[in-house]
Amino acid sequence: MLAYILRRLLYALPILIGVNLLTFALFFVVNTPDDMARLQLGVKHVTPEAIQKWKAERGYDRPLFWNPAAGGLQQLSDTIFFDKSARMFVGDFGQAEDGRDIAREITSRMGPSLAIALPTFVLGLFVTISLALILAFFRATALDFWGVVACVGLMSISSLFYIIGGQYLVAKVWQLVPISGFGEGLDAWRFLVLPVLIGVVGGIGSSTRWYRTIFLEEVGKDYVRTARAKGLPETLVFFRHILKNAMIPILTGVVVVIPLLFMGSLLTESFFGIPGLGSYTIDAINAQDFAVVRSMVFIGSVLYIAGLILTDISYTLVDPRIRFE
């Protein structure tokens, strides 16, 4: 099993390198640093000197991959690729347009992101799996039928509507919680309730339907018939036999997003003014701050790959076939 996890870890490395190369190509090959400079400086200020200055300030005045002017190892290291892309592997993301250190910004913003994303995730999982279990338990009844209809309806509603509608109704009309903002410490809960609630409700439709399908898939299996032939009550059949088997496909989709919770949610954070990574990303996109977007892409991939590895590890917990091989 250790070898299995080790193999997974080793497999992650080439993928990260791939991500790194891809983002580098996207950011520096499609458009040249000159283009970037022109865009940032604005039409009025574009002079060759200004462009040169802009590039030099940010270290974009070097060659992309290979610096023939430098000597020794510096031929490789004194390049845009090494400085901007390869150094991300050691957590060095450079500076944003406003001159702040991206790495420090990221670490300080992870907390607020997590404060929203984690409760949303846990509560959402609990609610949707419970609902799906109820629908699957009462399969082929009116409850199940209308439950599925409701799910399709809910998943046809734009996530923007959930946020805007929820914010308008709860915060503005009923004035139960502040419309937006974030507080430190325990005080933060007032700001968190609404975004978490909206996040949970917004996910009910599609998740419930998805889990219900998984449960129904298991209900039809032979071992369920065996369990019934033993005279087990239906609740035991469901909670012991079906739920445990259904955990395997459920984990595939669930565990992988756990590390990504750090990234926060773009929409929720920007609507509610949460100083997390989601709103950081949105601000960077709007300000066309490429250094930040690049860093977020890389961190997102690292977290996703961490999620993949976590998924593999979680399999060993629920699936004995993997645990013993």
């Binding site: 299996k221 032979d222 071992y223 018939r225 065996t226 369990a227 032939a229 033993k230 005279g231 087990l232 036999h241 445990k244 088997n245 395997i248 629920v318 699936d319 004995p320 076939r321």
Partner: peptide
């Protein structure tokens, strides 16, 4: 299971794998 027990054709799928 008490009064009457049953055995099925496919032992491979009739047992709970987990």
């Amino acid at each position: 299971g008490r009064g009457m027990g049953m055995i099925f054709q496919e032992p491979a799928t009739s047992l709970n794998p987990v």
